[in-house]
Design a binder for these strands. Structure first.
Lengths: 220, 220
DNA sequence: GGTTTTACATACAGACATGTATGTAAAGGT
DNA sequence: ACCTTTACATACATGTCTGTATGTAAAACC
């Protein structure tokens, strides 16, 4: 067959990744044959094996094409708890707006078996979880310094709790395809979770003016 | 081959389920062949196909052999929030003590692709999540009536938040096999999550006497 | 402009899993 | 004691996936 330009080849590679994501999301990783991926991408298995070692390698490419949902480290707006809350909200927003992100996380959380070569991917997932954890701990530490959480709040513990909450909300949000459980309440649940960390929980104060400016920056 | 007694047959069936759980936990559901399950159980595929329609049916049996981790409805000790906390703690305790439960949930959360016949299992999982949610909501409603949470706390929202927290803690607890992230802090995170719901968070009060009577029942 | 390398398509060999069909000997009922 | 059903084991037929080896024509390089 006629050799393709470098640019064309890169396009082909990217198309294979995109199609792999879709097929993974439909059939699950293990049940997906590379031949099916190739078919959907309009190539043959030869092309797939040219660009990727095997299915695990292709899966890695799918992951890195989507990237992480949030980087708390980059949050800039509001007090520490606001930044944390915004991060969580933004993750959900990406899930609901970007089909690619939704498919990728659907695959990672519900349609992938972390066995053999994929056990490594699992460690990677846990590793990126650690990033979240560390960022969250930093935020809680700042919040404590700013006096917006209880003085005896343990940043580590609070970060772990928020991390679990985050992991669960992603899992359930994606798992509850019919939207009967979480879809409507996710944002409120996030707001609630964060509010409960505050020293004088916002949720516990009369809040007739909920539509006003969400919170003041109380940092020095 | 010589026909077995009914009792022997039941024993065989149970052994197949137990071995299936182990093999699933080791190789993942999709990568597990029924022949391997049979081999480990000391029978042939004929026995497996006699007792179960196919792999999905066998997986269902594995699930129901283990059952649910917690039933919040049965909690009896302490105030509503105490009961909720105890439920969560008990779930983790079962995970760490019972190998069977650990294996089953390891499979369900990390080594199963919910596709095709298994999509039904996924709905089932979400359904049992709904049970948890309803029970938690009831507990929060009782807690509000008892005045131990803020009067304007929305039981539904709080229940959703706790549900997500629970789902995440199970996922992470099992996923973090090296124990570097969660294993040491899980109990504290649970205590923190619950404490933050209290009107005057327990975590904010000095608690040297944590081993004393957990809480007084303040319901009428 | 000739050679090398690339970007695939095609072909091949082997392994493996599934479902079913059939065999069988003893248990269970009458 | 006979007949039926059970609880498997064995055998078979089929489909499917994987990895690799090989072919090829044009792009890329010098």
């Amino acid at each position: 067959m006629a050799r393709k330009t470098k640019a064309e080849a890169a396009l082909t590679k990217d198309r294979i990744v995109t199609c792999a994501r879709q097929v993974f999301a439909r059939d699950g990783v293990t049940n997906t044959s590379l031949e099916e991926v190739a078919r959907v991408a309009g190539v043959t298995r030869g092309a797939v094996y040219w660009h990727f070692r095997n299915k695990a390698d292709l899966f890695m490419a799918v992951r890195s094409q989507t990237g992480l949902l949030i980087q708390l480290g980059q949050a800039k707006v509001g007090d520490p708890l606001q930044r944390l809350e915004n991060g969580l909200l933004q993750a959900l927003q990406r899930l609901s707006e970007e089909t690619a992100a939704q498919e990728t996380y659907e695959v990672m959380l519900w349609k992938c078996e972390y066995v053999g070569e994929f056990a490594q991917v699992r460690d990677d997932l846990i590793g990126s979880g650690r990033l979240f954890l560390d960022d969250a701990e930093t935020l809680y530490r700042e919040a404590r310094a700013a006096g917006i959480v209880a003085a005896n709040l343990d940043p580590k513990t609070a970060a772990v709790a928020t991390f679990c909450f985050y992991a669960g909300i992603l899992k359930i949000w994606l798992g509850d395809t019919r939207g009967t459980i979480l879809r409507q309440h996710a944002q409120q649940a996030i707001a609630h979770h964060i509010a409960q960390q505050r020293r004088i929980p916002l949720a516990a104060t009369r809040q007739v003016d909920r539509r006003g400016p969400p919170a003041k920056d109380s940092s020095p």
